[in-house]
Nucleic acid binder design. Structure first.
Length: 516
RNA sequence: GGCCCGGUGGCAGAGUGGUUAUGCAGGGGACUGCAAAUCCCCGUACAUCGGUUCGAUUCCGGUCCGGGCCUCCA
């Protein structure tokens, strides 16, 4: 286990960076709040999973085995308050004229595609909420028996006054909330913060997704699934719970309250609660419910490879909000391209790498296992500067997942002078394991994606290039340059090499991506 | 209205009580017909006003601006 630099992680519970101490040193248990699958995950949503993946990679780099659970929220939840609200899943189903189950299956599949494209490692368990309804009912009955629930017309509610320190995680000011004008919901809740554990279906309408329960036919409250599934797969006490910053005040406070009720204790479930900040656009955060958002697919349509987006995210601390701009993304693309060109060059000079280079991809053959063996194999015999950079990587990521600093080191490492190319590559492979960038297995050509809006076809480009070659032979440089400029204006970059002239698609040089 | 979090060079974004990352963009040079790629060189920025201090971008307070949550949300 790499313990030269102790792992330190920010804990939202207490709002400070603390030395990480696992409950079971041989197996760290992590639960990540997953997506609601009534629509495409947008690139802001995806930040949460790149963050969780980074955490998992760092833990396994530090030598821990990790059991990682990501849930899939495939139960419909209300878009607004009480029975005035509509169920998002139901809304999506009627919008797309499909069954609600089809909606969930479709968007779950797309989400998992996004996960793969971003090189996010598969969790040990994907846990769909609808596969745990009976567990949720049993859990809620137990809460009921413990006196934590009370019934209102539209369902069973959790009495937040029954648990100690309700809202501690979110630093909630319960008095202020009460005075606030925007607290909505059934007017007869005992406390403003009380929340539904079970929602009855409205009398006069039926949902496509509903189940029998002691509180009537309906659906579980949103917060219930995470308490139930984290406990089922990770136990009453586990190490880390992750999610978006928006969950810190409500969802996770409620989850903690349920955990405390169920265990009849003050225990919060997870020891560490970690939250990623938002990806923001000029007008604020992306919002799935407002319908204004960008998907990973839409970035690809613009000619941006998912690896570029991943690198873009790693360039900022997960605890800082990050502003999304097209210019920033194109800049990151240029940076990644340069790194890949460098790796290609290093490989050409490194001699035979075939015996070990595959090690950099074998992190995929695990469901959360420690990376110690792979790291040892890659670093065995490594000395000097490359070895120093392994230590720098360790120091950076051990400091609350300092990926921006790790990337700074990676750049220095790749372009270090007078250093054995094979050794640089071996060290870079370790960075790959931790950062998931696939630097050693991607080629610069992989970065090139034909934008969906690109209309010029390749035969036409080849014809223009042939024309240009003729012009160059004739020393008609004005003509050859004109052709190059023309192609570039159409989104085709060209470069003359000893092997001839090559071209590549450029990302669409739109002034900005407009939300759909 | 209440609570929380930020404001760093052209852009993104680390970090720090005194030596001030990294990437992109930009400028100069080498190379090249010209580009591309590569190599060399170049940037004292830390919202604002006070305070603490020998010294603050870094600590404290006010102001202004931005973001988040209080309702489903990564």
């Amino acid at each position: 286990m790499t313990q030269k630099h102790p792992l330190r992680l920010f804990n939202s519970l207490g709002r400070e960076v603390q030395d990480f101490q696992p409950i079971d040193p041989r197996n760290v248990r992590v639960y990540s709040c997953g997506p609601t699958v009534y629509n495409y995950a947008h690139i802001g949503n995806l930040r949460a999973y790149v963050f969780a993946d980074t955490l998992r990679r760092v833990l396994t780099f530090k030598g821990y085995n990790v059991t990682h659970v990501i849930n899939i929220t495939d139960v419909g939840h209300l878009t607004s308050d009480a029975d005035e609200g509509e169920d998002k899943m139901e809304v999506a189903a009627s919008r797309e004229k499909k069954s609600i189950w089809d909606i969930a299956a479709h968007y779950t599949a797309v989400f998992k595609d996004d996960v793969r494209r971003l090189n996010i490692l598969e969790p040990s368990h994907w846990t769909p909420a609808t596969a745990h309804i009976q567990e949720m009912i049993a859990f809620a009955r137990d809460l009921d028996q413990g006196g934590y629930l009370y019934e209102l017309e539209d369902g069973a509610y959790f009495d937040t006054a029954r648990v100690p320190d309700y809202g501690k995680l979110g630093l909630l000011d319960l008095e202020g909330q009460e005075a606030g004008a925007r607290v909505a919901g059934p007017g007869d809740k005992r406390n403003p913060a009380d929340f539904a554990v079970w929602r009855k279906s409205p009398e006069n309408s039926r949902r496509q997704m509903e189940w029998h329960s002691p509180w009537g036919v309906g659906a579980p409250g949103w917060h219930l699934e995470c308490s139930v599934m984290s406990m089922k797969y990770l136990g009453e006490r586990f190490d880390i719970h992750t999610g978006g910053i928006d969950h810190r005040q409500v969802h996770h406070c409620n989850e903690i309250a349920q955990n405390q009720g169920y265990t009849r204790s003050e225990k919060t479930g997870a020891n560490w609660w970690m939250h990623n900040e938002f990806l923001i656009m000029r007008d604020g955060k992306m919002s799935k419910s407002s319908g204004k958002f960008l998907t990973l697919g839409s970035l690809i349509d613009q000619g941006i490879h998912p690896a570029v987006y991943r690198l873009f995210l790693l360039g900022a601390s997960y605890r800082s909000s990050l502003e999304f701009t097209w210019d920033a993304l194109v800049g990151v693309r240029a940076s990644l391209r340069r790194m890949l060109l460098r790796v290609e060059d290093l490989k050409a000079r490194a001699g035979d790498t075939s015996q070990w280079i595959k090690l950099a991809t074998e992190d995929h053959y695990s469901s959360g296992g420690s990376l110690s063996y792979l790291v040892e194999r890659l670093t065995d015999g490594l000395t000097g500067k490359p070895a120093d950079y392994i230590d720098k990587l360790d120091a950076a990521v051990s400091n609350d997942l300092g990926t921006p600093v790790a990337l700074a080191h990676l750049n220095e490492l790749l372009f270090a002078k007078k250093t054995d190319p094979a050794d640089v590559l071996r060290a870079a492979a370790v960075y790959d394991l931790v950062l998931g960038l696939n630097l050693l297995t991607m080629s610069p050509r992989d970065l090139v994606i034909r934008p969906a809006g690109q209309t010029i076809d390749e035969a036409e480009i080849e014809a223009r290039l042939a024309e240009r070659t003729e012009a160059r032979k004739a020393k008609d440089f004005a003509r050859s340059d004109a052709i190059r400029d023309e192609l570039e204006a159409m989104g085709v970059g060209i470069m003359d090499t000893p092997q001839g002239t090559l071209f590549e698609w450029l990302p669409l040089a739109a002034t900005d991506i407009k939300p759909e």
